[in-house]
């Protein structure tokens, strides 16, 4: 393990944290906390095992602790305001789409969002995601299903609002939401 190997993990950790939280500073704080945790837990990391998975596990645990703490403080459950999100200066169609996507992501429950992002952004296997999040693979799969169905519904609702075109909703979408 070299310093290089550790440094190599940082961009992916930052990106994942950013998508998970939506705010640059809070995301980098989470990465920083993860490194601090890694610093105190090196003895628990087995040389030769997957460094990336280990760091993501540390980050996931910190994130969940943070979320629980915020729930206690009553910060969650409030609608997100525009100020909570970092909006890039340049407004263009792709940027708008990215902001919409980030907003919809933040409306997913944390555990579903985490699973979806670990699978999608990091290309981790379902088994690895199960290990990182500390749940059985079956739970990973059902969270992934809920996340993907729900994100699709949210994005469709956004698109409908944006283009203001009337598109009849397929009744089956409503059924899925109840899952």
């Amino acid at each position: 393990m070299t310093q290089h190997a550790l440094a190599e993990q940082i961009p992916a950790l930052r990106r994942y944290a950013r998508a998970l939280i939506g705010n640059t500073w809070a995301a980098d704080d989470l990465v920083q906390d993860t490194l601090e945790r890694a610093c105190t837990k090196w003895r628990l990391w087995l040389t030769g095992s997957d460094l990336r998975a280990w760091l993501f596990t540390l980050m996931h645990n910190l994130y969940i602790t943070q979320v629980r703490y915020q729930v206690r403080l009553g910060e969650l459950g409030q609608p997100l305001s525009l100020d909570d999100l970092d909006v890039p200066d340049v407004q263009s169609a792709p940027v708008d789409a990215a902001i919409d996507l980030q907003r919809c992501l933040l409306q997913l429950p944390e555990d579903q969002r985490a699973v979806l992002l670990l699978v999608t952004l990091e290309d981790l296997s379902y088994e690895e995601v199960a290990h990182i999040t500390g749940v059985p693979v079956g739970t990973v799969m059902s969270r992934l299903s809920r996340a993907r169905h729900r994100l699709r519904d949210l994005m469709n609702a956004k698109a409908e609002k944006r283009t203001a075109t009337e598109r009849p909703r397929r009744p089956v979408e409503n059924l899925r939401r109840l899952k």
Partner: peptide, 14 residues
């Protein structure tokens, strides 16, 4: 959706 997510915050990787 997967493609869109993978485009998200890619600037952070560079």
């Amino acid at each position: 959706q997967r493609d869109a997510l993978r485009q998200l915050h890619t600037q952070l990787l560079d």
